[in-house]
Nucleic acid binder design. Structure first.
Lengths: 345, 345
DNA sequence: CCCGAGGCTGACAACGTTGTCCAGGCTCTA
DNA sequence: TAGAGCCTGGACAACGTTGTCAGCCTCGGG
């Protein structure tokens, strides 16, 4: 059986350990450890012999054992809602950059907006003994994290605050952003303004709704129930909600779409309308400037959010940071046309 | 010092171990292990006592130690180019779903298209003893993986084949897709067709270029050098390349954009032109249907690619799969308007 | 020439878990 | 009632690494 398939032949092949390397190089175990870790106190000649043995055997240090011994894993966990969401791509990427700068790897998982799955993921990460956690919470009770915090797992919440525990949180000014977006529509003459957003049990959704109500109240406009649609995100239901708002007895002349997925669907619906309806979306979307009209949005900066959160995480690990804080990043209104359309009755 | 800050007080707090739990419950170490792992052979009464101790102490099994003992980490690594790229979001997500279905966690990192960084990442993952690797290669020599393969690390390459080693690869039919896209333009009367793509050292870029050349040759159209721009991806240079093609002595009437980033920039350039220029892009982009005209694309299915790769990975781990294979997934031409514009000279 | 200092090296324990194996107590049957 | 067999629980080693510490060897100074 010459040259049999590499993979099956050695499927359960065992890997060389430092002991093997030591034996081959004719040195002690600890000397190998020293070479592998670049510790001082090894003669060049010895080092060469060890290095040769390492290369010959294809040795690779087993970090599980290392972690067990040292206590730190040099990895952090990121739990978010959905990796496929364009909002989380840049966020995830910036967290990774910061982790990389600190020599840490990133383990991540999606909670799919399910609190149980969030908890399951977070605890799995803790069992791996990640040094820190960046969590975009799906649930609203995080007391299950208490033993972890006590054990020193650095933790930063992102996008939404933690429930029932005192932890760092980095988020956008959802309330202010939404209020500004609505005020912008009001300033362009709109009074009947629709709001389509997520379930208010989600913090960001609740805050944005609060911003909507506040702006409307500031403008002295009473809000009709039929103008608000809460808890809808899947395209089909968003579509129906938008169509109802536009066709009721008291049709809206503008719509505020409270997140990027809603915005995209609303754009589709509006494209089919003959009447020109104004639109402001929360979250920026790619190519928004190339549509007719360009889409006016209240933009967050996901990369900045991720970076800020990750940096705080590592400062917790440094010991530089001690007191949990709430950090709110500003949003930015980007006018591109759709939010500046006048009301068309 | 009553009720001092939890975090600082116990920053370096040590975590309870099974030994602690055993002591508190008044049982042996192994009994705790049995309860934690749901192994049989423990009376309900004993189990209750152990569970109580676990809850009271906030014990969480240390997976590093477990891994060290068992050999399997129940985690897989994913190395891609850039998490922020919309192509990789769904891919990453689908890999994660499959991993989750197999009880594994996903560790991922971005290579930023840098071969050294790819290798560094891959080896770091191997040091963590991930059970398997899904790699979107940046480099073209993967012999450094030989010891890992020999040790039984399941490996699947994605989007581009591995270099100098025999490994599974899952990719799109880049050649065929590009050829079809170009043929589509030819069928609509175009003869002077531009191509803007990545460096040909990147496999996908080379294949798409090959598809372009093949389609042109099939149509009996000689290709002018000035129609091809290779190795440009950053928006500024893509813009310049597109403008040159459109303004030269022999201006193109259609452009084939060989990836999503290029497509987006080309859309911007074309929007500024008075002349109507046809466009077909490789990779679908969000909202492509809402632009004027809609963007015709050769679409890949990133979720399917990720799923296929991950499933193969776990079948390698099962032992079901032994012989490395190359799997090519079909692309799909989606006509939306921009690719059906007639030539405007 | 002897002694001390300092540089290299290796033996050994420990990290927290799981697999192996054995002991003791119980039940069931003859 | 005694013996066999089963069920429960625990002692112990091992996984691969790193920290501690002690020993050896060399070199320089007195």
């Amino acid at each position: 059986m010459p040259e049999t398939n590499l993979r099956s032949a050695t499927r359960y092949g065992t890997r060389p350990t430092m002991k093997d390397v030591a034996a081959r190089a004719g040195v002690g175990l600890k000397t190998v450890s020293r070479v592998v870790n670049g510790e001082p106190g090894v003669t060049p000649e010895t080092e060469r012999r060890v290095q040769e043995a390492i290369d010959a055997l294809g040795f690779r240090r087993n970090d599980s054992a290392r972690v067990l011994r040292k206590g730190r894993t040099a990895s952090i966990g990121l739990v978010l809602e959905d990796l496929a969401d364009p909002f989380y791509g840049p966020l995830s990427r910036s967290v990774e950059e910061v982790a990389r700068a600190h020599g840490a790897l990133l383990i991540n998982g999606s909670s799919a907006e399910d609190p149980d799955r969030e908890q399951e993921l977070v605890l799995a990460l803790c069992a791996r003994r990640v040094d820190g956690l960046v969590v975009i919470p799906a649930g609203d009770d995080h007391r299950y994290l208490e033993p972890e915090l006590r054990a020193g797992v650095a933790t930063v919440f992102v996008d939404r605050p933690a429930g029932h525990i005192d932890a760092d949180v980095v988020l956008s000014d959802n309330f202010g952003g939404a209020r500004d977006g609505i005020a912008h529509l009001v300033a362009h003459g709109h009074r009947r303004i629709g709001f389509i957003g997520d379930m208010p049990r989600i913090h960001t959704a609740a805050e944005r709704l609060r911003g909507y109500r506040a702006a409307m109240e500031d403008a002295g406009i009473p809000v009709a129930d039929s103008w608000m649609s809460l808890g809808v995100t899947d395209p089909e239901r968003v579509r129906r909600a938008a169509e109802e708002m536009l066709s009721g007895p008291d049709p809206v002349t503008a719509i505020f779409a409270a997140n990027n997925r809603v915005t995209v669907t609303v754009i589709r619906v509006l494209a089919e309308q003959t009447r020109r309806v104004a639109l402001v979306g929360f979250d920026d979307i790619e190519l928004a400037d190339l549509l007719q009209p360009g889409v006016t949005v209240v933009a967050q900066d996901p990369a900045a959010i991720g970076r800020t959160a990750a940096e705080r995480l590592f400062r917790q690990l440094d010991g530089t940071l001690v007191v949990p804080e709430r950090i709110e990043l500003p949003t930015r209104l980007i006018t591109r046309g759709s939010g500046e359309l006048p009301p068309a009755d």
